[in-house]
């Protein structure tokens, strides 16, 4: 069953209070190597049938309209996994092994 992964991150130039809190926790735990943490979201969308260009176009629309808010976030990746097709966007071009 193909899975389409959508990755969303808070905009780089805007505050990420969640990431800041995690970074603070790491520092308190004694880690002084990690200097920054940003927290985003990963959505896994599944389909019954094969994923074609039309499906991907629809997923990109969903990613922009519902899964992310363009005022505060960016969609940083739309990737198909578990299938023969691997499609990427926004230069995150890794092929994820099934």
């Amino acid at each position: 069953m193909p899975t389409i992964v959508v990755d969303v991150m808070p905009k780089a130039e805007l505050l990420d209070p969640q990431g800041k809190a995690v970074a603070g926790a790491l520092a308190r735990l004694g880690n002084n190597e990690i200097t920054g943490v940003r927290v985003g979201k990963r959505f896994e969308l599944t389909t019954d049938g094969p994923v074609d260009d039309a499906t991907l176009a629809e997923v990109r629309r969903i990613a922009d309209d519902l899964l992310s808010n363009s005022v505060i976030e960016n969609v940083v990746g739309v990737t198909v996994v578990d299938g023969a097709t691997v499609s990427t966007e926004a230069g995150t071009g890794e092929t994820v092994a099934p």
Binding site: D16, P17, K20, N69, V71, I72
Partner: peptide, 14 residues
């Protein structure tokens, strides 16, 4: 803001 009737967005308190 989510409906785009108003500008900006709201995130977790700093």
């Amino acid at each position: 803001t989510e409906a785009h009737l108003l500008p900006g967005g709201l995130i977790r308190n700093d």
